[in-house]
Design a protein around this nucleic acid. Structure first.
Lengths: 160, 160
DNA sequence: TTAAACTGGACTGAAACGGTACTATTTAAC
DNA sequence: GTTAAATAGTACCGTTTCAGTCCAGTTTAA
């Protein structure tokens, strides 16, 4: 399974939450912890990283907090992942930093790895934070007949 | 960094190698080990997994070996990765198996995770093994003027 | 001055991963 | 029929990475 670490997943949750409540100018780590049901230390850690990655701006001191550095539609999922997991590449070979792979000088598929990484990167760059935050709230969704129904933990067939 | 395990990377190397030497009907683990410069036990292990995943067919006994189950253009990179790493999903939540996530009943972005996973999966399904094996051999590539130049460990700007 | 919030770094237990070894089974060739 | 070469299956272990936590420091509104 190609997978993101849990922390990156949580990071996406936090970013999505901030995008949803975009009207609120400042989000404290504590608030986000409660809303996301994630432990405070973890939330705090993630916010720091997202800040350092330039995705958030912070206001220190009491009455401080974090807010999105840009509009949700201007932040791609690729960026968020890159900040939390490093550059998006499927192997060390695909990174721009060289010298990490033993087979480097004669690696048979080095350039092909780039093809793959680029495909994934391109796909993720097209998904924006606004795409994650707007479409469906989990509490109510519209069913096939167009009626609004309360839903818990069930996902519409929209994507599949 | 979204990344594949080293073993998956090696698996791609092996599959690519078999696709390149597609004329040779049978490839032994030993041959592939020499060609790929990968340790024999590792190669052997990978070939077993690729076999079980249905990507290879095997012939046992002396003069045995492995060969591709289908033509290179009919095997996608997504399949290879899925065999070696499990289903392509970015988080446990994105898998069809449920009940793994604590937040499952009220996860705020569960359906959105699927959007992301689907984007990546779609991208990888479009890249076929034949795309990896044919385009450029590392020894010679064509430069901007169309001249064939010997190249070692350098990649053309084709993708970027 | 105080309390609430961010900032930075360090630490630890657990899980995953890479890598290897061993044994059994199959089969072509002599 | 025996042998040697190859696949098939399983089990193991050391290393590394990851998730998660904690603490001490800094900033700033009230």
């Amino acid at each position: 399974m190609i997978r993101l670490g849990k922390l990156t997943d949580y990071g996406l949750v936090l970013m999505t939450d901030m995008a949803r409540n975009h009207d609120r100018s400042l989000h404290t780590a504590r608030d986000l912890s409660v809303e996301s049901r994630l432990p405070l230390p973890t939330v705090s850690k993630l916010l720091k990283e997202l800040l350092q990655g330039g995705l958030l701006v912070s206001h220190r001191g009491i009455k401080g907090g974090y807010s999105l550095a840009r509009k949700p539609r201007e932040i791609s999922v690729a960026e968020i992942i890159a900040v939390l997991e490093g550059p998006i590449a499927l192997t060390e070979c695909s990174t721009d930093i060289s010298g990490l792979c033993d087979l480097e000088p004669c690696c048979p598929i080095k350039d092909n790895q780039r093809v793959i990484s680029q495909a994934v990167r391109g796909a993720l760059e097209k998904v924006m934070l606004s795409d994650l935050s707007q479409p469906l709230h989990l509490t109510t969704i519209r069913n096939a007949r167009g009626n609004l129904v309360p839903t818990i933990g069930f996902v519409s067939g929209r994507m599949q």
